[in-house]
């Protein structure tokens, strides 16, 4: 078995299982930490708050803060975060090869976008990531908050994007299989790494956002 087959086959399967096991663990572990009942009388609807917060947060783009901060100190961070996540979403779900990968795992497929679009979104995503990284390096707040885990997150997410890009464009004259193998290797690592890192925020997001919407909806303020 050559490397490509190994990274696409057994290692992918292992990575997928680690990912599933890890995420189920993370989710349940958090949820099972115990909840407190809120006895204070509601001034508004928690459910409406949840709906509103998702419409604001996800309906636009996940990165737009539900309330614009007012200070326009770092609008670039918002924009870059949005470019990165939107691009990532499009690349992961709306490119044909990725959809086919999902289909083989999930059993159903969906329509996809033409390749040049995907290409553009991938580029946008990478540019966004580079801006976010420079922000982490340049801004004192970024430097202070970023630990080893966050640097690693960046690399682990950037590499599949980069290798996918190189793969699509046949850059550097590398044999297709070699880049494909590298791409699959980085994807496998991403899957394995997610449960051990804060990239799992795509899961916790739905816990915290729901809580946020419910809490402030209940208080009678716009979440």
């Amino acid at each position: 078995m050559d490397w490509l087959e190994f990274f696409r086959g057994p290692m992918f399967q292992i990575a997928l299982l680690v990912f599933i096991l890890g995420m189920v663990y993370r989710f349940l572990r958090i949820v099972l930490m115990g909840w407190k009942k809120d006895y204070s009388p509601p001034r508004g609807s928690a459910a409406a708050g949840v709906v509103k917060t998702y419409v604001k947060g996800l309906g636009f783009l996940p990165f737009l803060p539900p309330k614009f901060p007012g200070t326009r100190h770092r609008p670039l961070t918002y924009i870059a975060g949005g470019m990165f996540h939107l691009g990532l979403f499009v690349v992961i779900f709306l490119s044909t090869p990725h959809m086919e990968a999902w289909r083989s795992v999930l059993g159903f497929g969906w329509p996809t976008l033409p390749t040049p679009f995907i290409d553009g979104f991938a580029a946008m995503s990478m540019i966004g990531m580079i801006i976010l990284l420079s922000n982490r390096i340049v801004s004192p707040v970024g430097r202070m908050l970023t630990g080893l885990g966050e640097w690693l997150n960046w690399i682990v997410v950037f590499l599949p994007l980069l290798s996918g890009w190189v793969l699509y464009h046949h850059l550097f004259g590398m044999p297709y299989q070699t880049i494909f193998a590298i791409h699959m290797f980085t994807v496998d690592w991403l899957l394995i790494w997610i449960p051990f890192s804060r990239i799992s925020h795509f899961m916790t997001y739905f816990i915290t956002r729901t809580m946020h919407g419910a809490k402030f909806g209940r208080l009678g303020v716009e979440p």
Partner: peptide, 27 residues
């Protein structure tokens, strides 16, 4: 005092630092 509410929020933070821009002390 860590329950699911606290745990989920601590785990969710991506360390993006955007909250800094909200705080009048930081600004």
């Amino acid at each position: 005092n860590v329950g699911a509410e606290v745990a989920s929020q601590l785990e969710a933070c991506t360390r993006c630092g955007l909250c800094a821009d909200a705080c009048h002390f930081y600004i």
